Computed example of a mutant assay.
Amino acid sequence: MTTTAPPSPPTGPHLRLRLAPDSPLPRRLDGVWWPRSYDLPAELPQLLAGLPRAWGHIAGVTVNGAAWSAAPDRMLVCDKVVRLRQVAARHAPGTIILLSPGHGRWDLLVVPPDTAEEDAGPLMTTALSARP
């Protein structure tokens, strides 16, 4: 009898995320995320799975409701409940806020999904080098 290993699950697309380097200085952005769509339930699991463990369990996510497609008020991600909040954020329409009780808050700039690759890379780098 011959046994073969089950086929490997297909790997998803590469997470397009850049985090700011650790610094004792305050900053406006903690990172830049370039999702592939505005479908939050589809995009969020990959983002949360790619975050540093030191950030803890992200229990709350706030996004600009005008930019993202409709989403439930909560969803299960990596076997943990994540509360989703969509607001009309005129002051920061292109950001996503991640909350982890006991660990902190992180603000990520969201690069629009339809941004060309040659524009997105420099934008991600420039956003993280800007001072508060």
Rank of each mutant, 00 (worst) to 15 (best):
2 T>H: 13
2 T>R: 14
3 T>E: 15
3 T>H: 13
4 T>P: 00
5 A>C: 09
7 P>N: 08
10 P>I: 07
11 T>Y: 00
12 G>A: 14
12 G>F: 02
13 P>A: 15
14 H>W: 10
14 H>Y: 07
17 L>W: 05
17 L>A: 07
18 R>H: 10
19 L>R: 13
19 L>Q: 09
19 L>H: 08
19 L>M: 12
24 P>H: 09
26 P>T: 14
29 L>Y: 09
29 L>A: 06
29 L>I: 05
29 L>F: 09
31 G>T: 10
32 V>G: 02
36 R>G: 04
36 R>F: 01
37 S>K: 09
37 S>R: 09
38 Y>E: 11
39 D>F: 01
39 D>P: 01
42 A>M: 04
42 A>W: 01
43 E>I: 01
44 L>M: 03
44 L>W: 01
46 Q>N: 06
46 Q>S: 09
48 L>S: 03
49 A>P: 02
49 A>T: 02
54 A>D: 13
54 A>S: 14
54 A>V: 10
54 A>Q: 15
55 W>M: 12
56 G>Y: 05
57 H>Q: 10
58 I>W: 04
60 G>E: 14
60 G>F: 07
62 T>Y: 02
64 N>Y: 06
66 A>M: 14
67 A>C: 12
67 A>M: 13
68 W>K: 01
68 W>D: 02
69 S>D: 12
70 A>M: 08
70 A>S: 13
70 A>N: 08
71 A>V: 02
71 A>L: 03
72 P>S: 04
73 D>N: 10
73 D>Q: 11
73 D>H: 12
73 D>V: 07
75 M>V: 01
76 L>Y: 05
79 D>V: 00
81 V>A: 11
82 V>N: 10
83 R>N: 11
84 L>I: 15
86 Q>H: 08
88 A>M: 08
88 A>V: 12
89 A>T: 08
90 R>P: 00
91 H>I: 12
92 A>N: 11
93 P>K: 09
95 T>W: 00
95 T>K: 00
98 L>Y: 08
101 P>I: 04
102 G>V: 11
104 G>Y: 08
106 W>I: 02
106 W>R: 15
107 D>T: 14
108 L>Y: 04
109 L>Y: 06
111 V>I: 15
112 P>L: 02
114 D>G: 10
115 T>L: 15
115 T>Y: 11
116 A>G: 12
116 A>S: 14
116 A>Q: 13
117 E>W: 07
117 E>I: 08
117 E>S: 12
118 E>H: 15
118 E>D: 14
118 E>K: 14
120 A>C: 07
120 A>K: 04
120 A>L: 07
121 G>M: 13
125 T>W: 00
128 L>V: 12
129 S>C: 02
129 S>N: 06
130 A>T: 13
132 P>K: 06
